[in-house]
């Protein structure tokens, strides 16, 4: 690792001030950033650790909306249970030690194309709350590792409208523990949302044909005959684009069947 300083602010305002230096970078749970720093793929002058910011931690629920602080660990979301599909997703991220440290804000800021939380946020139609504004998930996820976040902008919370039914199915890539393909399905009064992670070179995205079919008939059978094109899907040593395309339909059906 290159050398850098660490600051540990106690409030969002202090963190934002510390991040105004353009060579400063936010540090969440460090479960992605620290391995990146070890490989010298990033060279910040200063890391601003968000783990001491109490106002960014914790989970609350009001009026059908679950608000998860940006600094809340995967472990705490897993233990919460008030949005079952979200807690189950968090409980299956990585391993226990990763879940002790990793945070929802870090995962959503990073937007790894194989990460789990982006599928939950997009699939639930969540709102990403930052120190500056609120961004609808549909406008937030721009592409692989790309988001609508500006320089120094901090995710302070994520607001999830709790659906009638939802489920996340992850086909685990066993070496990394990330999703080879993961699908989040949510059924709300306004229709069905289907978000796919792990599959596309464009990162997390919605599968609109499946949404349409499921909005008419919320059953795995409604997806019979529906396939996704392998064009532009990720192909690597773990799976070809065709394999991933197949998995998208299979995981979507499983998520519909398991939704509760």
């Amino acid at each position: 690792m290159y050398a850098f300083d660490i600051e540990r602010p106690a409030t969002v305002a202090e963190a934002v001030a510390a991040l105004s230096n353009e060579d400063a970078q936010a540090l969440g749970g460090g479960q992605t950033l620290i391995p990146t720093l070890k490989q010298r793929l990033a060279s910040p002058e200063k890391l601003v650790s968000l783990t001491g910011v109490a106002e960014m931690k914790g989970i609350s629920s009001a009026g059908g909306i679950l608000t998860v602080g940006g600094g809340t660990t995967h472990d705490d979301v897993a233990a919460d249970g008030s949005y079952k599909a979200l807690s189950e997703l968090a409980a299956n991220i990585g391993d226990p030690a990763v879940r002790s440290r990793g945070t929802i804000g870090g995962s959503i800021a990073n937007n790894d194309p194989s990460a789990c939380y982006p599928a939950a946020a997009l699939g639930s139609g969540a709102t990403i709350v930052t120190n500056e504004r609120e961004i609808a998930a549909d406008d937030y996820f721009v592409g692989m590792f790309e988001t609508a976040l500006g320089e120094g902008e901090i995710i302070t919370a994520v607001k999830f409208p709790i659906p009638e039914k939802a489920n996340y199915q992850k086909f685990v890539q066993p070496a990394s523990r990330f999703a080879l393909v993961g699908v989040f399905v949510a059924k709300t009064a306004d229709g069905v949302r289907v978000a796919v992670t792990g599959a596309s070179n464009e990162g997390v995205h919605r599968w609109s044909a499946a949404e349409e079919a499921l909005s008419k008939d919320f059953s795995a059978g409604a997806l019979d005959g529906l396939t996704v094109s392998a064009d532009d899907l990720i192909a690597d040593l773990h799976g070809s684009a065709e394999y991933r395309a197949h998995l998208v339909s299979v995981m979507t059906k499983r998520a519909v069947a398991a939704a509760s």
Partner: peptide
């Protein structure tokens, strides 16, 4: 790469990969 777990210790009662946390934290 934060994957092997040989470095697991407990921090405030929770298992943590000590190679994936700074001493300052």
């Amino acid at each position: 790469t934060s994957q092997c777990g040989a470095c697991v210790v407990h921090v405030d009662g929770k298992p943590v990969k000590s190679c994936t946390m700074f001493a300052a934290e």
